[in-house]
Design a protein around this nucleic acid. Structure first.
Lengths: 243, 243
DNA sequence: CTTAGTTATGCTCAACTTGAGTAGAAAGAC
DNA sequence: GTCTTTCTACTCAAGTTGAGCATAACTAAG
């Protein structure tokens, strides 16, 4: 251990510190595809590019609390289950200064997603283009509702890519699929959500059988209304089946 | 957005920043159980308690580079595959000041684990006591070779617990099992590693069949030497089988 | 009112995977 | 040579998955 490292270990206040921020990946389903909520940057650097909502971490604020504050103040969303994703620490990821950012992931049901879009925060929906299968990983891109590409600021394409990868990995053995659905849903809706996350279709009867056998869903007895054809039974997520 | 948040967003240098550190979870297998390499704290606070090797992140240093530097300088280990685990940001996790720590995980084959213990860094092996099954999570504790409990410093019990949880989760679909073995190994050794990570035994023939069918291992043609009974075939990890 | 069109739901069957047990092979110890 | 122990391959039952078919339930068109 060198002298400077010794000092760095015991008197860190004497050394310059990176700034610490949080960035939020807010995902929902839009037109059957995974979509994220982004903000258009109005100022330099990277003005005009699209960025994740983010903010700096206060000195007496936990990371989770900072993420919740950004969710509330920058995205105008009252409540969502936030989960830490990964921490991005490339030295040049922000041209202004050294900023290390802890990325968080939240899943929004369609109603919450639409409400956030309509709120005054200026959020836009960006459909995610995921050019890789499974959990192999790789870059993703974003496009507007009309298919026009949305250029992403900083390393936010990497952050979105990791969010998709993580989401796919957790799909089979956690309740992430239900987080994107309203309280009552049909098996078809659940399958569509899984297909959107996987980016690949699913076998219908095997999917239904698996979901019912797993014990995570309970029939409500009610049926969906307003369909042109036979209405499907409505289910709800039954957390007790997980244990 | 309030005025103070606006300023926080655009002039963060004016605000006090948390210190940023990395902590390393260095895992190996010892006597058939998962074990971590820990350092005994010599100074206050928490003097005498056992801690993960860690250090502060330099202003022009990536997180990965900081982790590699700590691996080299604090643990005396030249090379290991480091993987970011999670970032811990409780406000009071260190009594001296606000320190946010990015935890990294590295898996050491037995030879590297023993070499690190024998090095001059002062590391000790701590067998992990994991009182929960599967990936349910929860606190873990550590004990010395003689079974005496080792009190853990700061929130390092939480960090170790998350490392075990992550390791168990990745066991079935990644190559983590091979990272804890030498280049050539028997199927029995591979099974023992998997059993140590899971904390539960495995069906022998099903395990062998699964490993061979997966295509990740290739027979070397050689057999282990020095056994009292029939020597097992030696295999090596075949990365090409992953694709 | 009847029929066509469309989706939901339950059923069956073959293919594949997993858990468990048995039998022969291969080495050292005696 | 025989015994002991482990490695390895094989078989069989049980469970899971992919795929298709028949019937039910509903709206809209005629």
């Amino acid at each position: 251990m060198t002298e400077s490292e010794f000092l760095a270990g015991y008197d860190p206040a004497a050394y310059e510190r990176p700034a610490l921020a949080v960035d939020l990946v807010l995902l929902g389903i839009r037109a059957g595809r995974l979509a994220a909520l982004l903000l258009r940057r109005g100022q330099q650097p990277q003005a005009g590019l699209w960025a994740l909502p983010g903010g700096f971490v206060g000195i007496a604020e936990t990371l989770d609390a900072a993420a919740e504050r950004v969710l509330r103040d920058k995205a105008g969303i009252g409540r969502a289950r936030l989960e830490q994703l990964y921490t991005f620490g490339a030295v040049d990821r922000d041209p202004r200064m050294r900023i290390v950012s802890v990325a968080y992931l939240a899943l929004l049901p369609e109603a919450a997603f639409v409400e956030a879009l309509a709120g005054g925060a200026g959020l836009a929906a960006a459909a995610l283009v995921v050019p890789w299968a499974g959990e192999s990983g790789g870059p993703v891109s974003a496009e507007a509702d009309d298919g026009a590409p949305l250029a992403l600021a900083f390393d936010h394409a990497d952050i979105l890519a990791l969010a998709v990868k993580r989401l796919r990995g957790k799909l089979d053995y956690t309740d992430v699929g239900f987080a994107l659905l309203p309280e009552h849903f049909t098996l078809r809706q659940l399958q569509d959500v899984h297909a959107a996350i996987r980016g690949a279709p699913l076998n219908k009867s095997a999917f239904r059988r698996r979901m019912r056998d797993r014990g995570w869903i309970a029939p409500t007895g009610a049926r969906e209304a307003g369909t042109a054809f036979r209405p499907a039974e409505l289910y709800r997520f039954d957390r007790s089946g997980q244990f």
